[in-house]
Amino acid sequence: MAEISYRDAVTRGIAQEMARDPDVVFLGEDVAKPGGCFKATVGLYEQFGALRVRDTPISEQAILGAAMGAAMTGLKPIAEIMFSDFIAVCFDYIANEFPKSRYMSNGQLKCPLVVRTANGAGSRFGAQHSQSVENWCMMIPGLKVVAPSTPRDVIGLMAAAVRDPDPVIFFEHKSLYNSKGEVPDGEIVDTLGSAKIVRPGKDATICALALMVPRALEAAERLKIDHGIDCEVVDVRSLVPLDTQTILGSVARTGRLFTVEENPRLCGWGAEIVSIVADEAFYDLDGPPVRITTPHIPLPAADIMEDVVLPTPDRIAETVKRSLEA
């Protein structure tokens, strides 16, 4: 067991898979000698060499297209898109190519690859370098989508993503790169499609993802200490496949559902979870499900404004308390 950062976990997760399988290759902008714009891949170039860790031009379509062509013909590429906002310039691959080639070819073609990308706000970068865009990917049949919140999950889900035979979009959160957590020694392999109850509780279920997980946990602690409200926090971890059983089971115990989403309001993943719970567990609910999201606005750059729009532990705690008391 050792404490490592989320940033170092990215490197360790990729290294674990590259050491295991020579078909795993890694490409992206400034990922090789520079070690990545967020320094999340430092040392991979030195460890695995120039043939397996390759810098590309600023050509996101070429990066994802090349990853797909390599995946179709036998490699297991990991492609980096530096900021998740840039998915918009190569969305054809995410929306039309990766997820449809197997289906359209009636199962002839495969696309086992991982796109890892830095998602989310907190760096004061403004509206084009701070978004949470996991919903852009969640809505497309044929993709898998994960977003880990801890160093251990980064390694375990990276391994699961690389070993998975389908295209996986792997959202790392920029504001979690400096966070630390305990990680066991040796190989770590997790499972896609499994949520995790990170804090048991009996009064309400709070579903959260990525940066919202530590914030939900902090809110739950305050609610317990200040008001005696005992919240269960579910780290959703994987949007596709979605572990609805863990969520439905939690709601069956607590009777209340809250989702905490960093994405803007419309069509957020929380809406899908609320819809599933309303449809399948309506009579388990003791009150209306509540979504806590960033408002439906582009993100402002200034720190005082960015801090206001993202769900905070205060806002989460206040919303849960108000709803339970209503």
């Binding site: 990853a67 062509g69 390599a70 190519e97």
Partner: peptide, 13 residues
């Protein structure tokens, strides 16, 4: 144009 980068990837393999 989508398949030009994809062909690059197969060639990279």
């Amino acid at each position: 144009g989508a398949h030009l980068p994809i062909a690059c990837g197969a060639a990279w393999r």
